[in-house]
Amino acid sequence: MTYHAKVIAGGKIVIPADLRREFGMRDGDTVVLDRLADGGLSIRTFDQVVRDTQRRAREIFGAGYTVDQFIAENRADWGEE
């Protein structure tokens, strides 16, 4: 389904209510705006960005890799054991 919204005074855009409900958006939530390669615009919730970042980190580092391991490895690389 396609949605339309107007940009109003101050550059504000109202996201349609049914989309806000579908994505669990509440007043005061943070959304992340990204420029797309084709010149478009992506709007994602902060939670969506966190989940995507976690998924990509698992792909790169493996599912069992921890922040503590990352810090320890970097300290070792810099001679800060």
Rank of each mutant, 00 (worst) to 15 (best):
M1S: 14
M1A: 15
T2H: 03
T2M: 06
Y3K: 13
H4N: 12
H4A: 14
A5I: 11
K6L: 06
K6F: 05
K6Y: 06
K6M: 05
K6R: 05
K6E: 02
V7K: 03
V7R: 07
V7S: 01
I8D: 07
A9F: 04
G10F: 01
G10I: 02
G10Q: 07
G10S: 02
G11K: 00
G11E: 04
K12D: 04
K12P: 05
K12C: 03
K12M: 10
I13S: 08
V14P: 00
V14Y: 08
V14E: 07
A17T: 06
D18A: 14
D18K: 12
D18I: 10
L19N: 14
L19V: 15
R20H: 12
R20S: 10
R20P: 00
R21F: 11
E22A: 13
E22Y: 13
G24S: 06
G24C: 01
G24L: 04
G24E: 03
M25N: 00
R26G: 09
R26Y: 06
D27T: 06
D29G: 02
T30N: 02
V31P: 02
V32H: 07
D34G: 01
R35L: 03
R35I: 08
R35G: 09
R35M: 07
R35D: 13
A37E: 02
G40R: 09
G40I: 11
G40A: 10
L41R: 12
L41W: 13
S42Q: 13
I43M: 15
R44K: 15
R44T: 04
T45H: 03
T45L: 03
T45P: 07
F46E: 11
D47K: 13
D47I: 12
Q48H: 06
Q48V: 05
Q48S: 09
Q48T: 04
V49E: 00
V49R: 05
V49H: 02
R51Y: 05
R51I: 06
R51H: 06
R51N: 06
R51P: 00
R51S: 07
R51L: 07
D52R: 04
D52F: 07
D52E: 12
D52H: 02
T53Y: 01
T53G: 03
Q54C: 11
Q54N: 14
R55I: 11
R58E: 01
I60V: 05
I60A: 03
I60F: 05
I60M: 03
F61P: 04
F61M: 10
F61E: 05
G62A: 14
G62K: 13
A63I: 09
A63Q: 15
G64E: 00
G64A: 02
Y65W: 11
Y65L: 07
Y65N: 07
T66C: 10
V67A: 12
D68P: 00
D68L: 04
Q69K: 11
F70I: 03
F70V: 04
I71S: 06
I71Q: 01
N74C: 15
N74L: 15
R75T: 15
R75F: 15
A76L: 14
D77V: 09
W78I: 06
W78Y: 13
E80A: 12
E80Y: 08
E80F: 08
E80S: 08
E81K: 08
E81G: 10
